[in-house]
């Protein structure tokens, strides 16, 4: 955000990668890729690639983090060293700690944490290739991993970012738009209830632009939730088909 691009980012209504303002990058989701984990997911959103794994409900360590009436939800978001253009040093940064926290706050409303008192649900998210939208992709992947782990939930959580580029509101920013755009507004929501579970924003937008952005995100989240659902159903159906042969 803030920099200046040396070329226009939108030409005749088309973005640099050929998309229209409201078009999502192609994306795919696969559930159940880590055998050791209770639940897992691999997700690609354009060139952004994420792997998520869920372990739990398990014992809370250290013990003092234990909560008497609900599960302790632990989210670790990290970028592996070769996921960014300059090598990213391993280990947590201030950025990854903040993102881990907002992802936790985005997922917690959907999980029936009170079903698992005195336990820990551990969610690990690794960004393997970063091209903007890593936190929203992380939320989408973590949700599928949670469902795959059989965790009790009220709804799925779907997530996408809108932004402002050359005074236009657009959906699902990729790297160049993220670097040179005027604003970025990631959203997560529960599509069935319409409740929003993540909002962050940086840049400069009018209230009307924000309204437009949220509307776009809502529609996109419904679309994403359908693919999340399909990823899970496919995994379990596939087992059935394979085994009937």
């Amino acid at each position: 955000m803030g920099g200046k691009s040396d070329k226009p980012l939108i030409v005749k209504g088309k973005r640099l990668d050929g998309r229209t303002a409201e078009e999502l990058r192609p994306f795919k989701i696969k559930a159940g890729i880590i055998k050791q984990a209770d639940g897992s997911c691999e997700l690609e959103f354009g060139e952004t690639k994420v792997i998520a794994g869920v372990y739990g409900p398990k014992k809370v360590l250290p013990k003092h983090l234990e909560e008497n009436t609900r599960a302790f939800l632990k989210v670790t978001y990290s970028m592996i060293p070769f996921s960014t253009s300059e090598r990213n040093r391993p280990g947590p940064s201030r950025r990854s700690k903040e993102i881990s926290k907002v992802i936790k706050d985005a997922l917690a409303p959907a999980i029936n944490l009170e079903k698992y008192p005195q336990t820990c649900i551990d969610i690990h998210i690794e960004i393997t290739n970063a091209n903007a939208g890593t936190r929203t992709s992380a939320i989408n992947a973590a949700t599928v991993a949670l469902i795959d782990a059989g965790i009790e939930m009220r709804d799925v959580v779907a997530s996408i970012a809108a932004g402002k580029v050359e005074d236009q509101v657009i959906l699902d920013l990729f790297q160049d738009e993220d670097n040179f755009g005027q604003a970025d507004l990631p959203i997560a929501m529960m599509p069935r209830t319409g409740e929003i579970t993540l909002v962050q924003m940086d840049g400069d937008m009018t209230a009307a632009e924000i309204k437009k952005a949220i509307d776009m995100c809502e529609k996109a989240c419904l679309k994403i939730a359908k693919v999340q659902r399909k990823a899970i159903i496919d995994e379990y159906k596939n087992n059935e088909v394979k085994n009937n042969e």
Partner: peptide
């Protein structure tokens, strides 16, 4: 039928 959380 296979269902997931949030399915009505």
């Amino acid at each position: 039928e296979i269902v997931i959380p949030g399915d009505v």
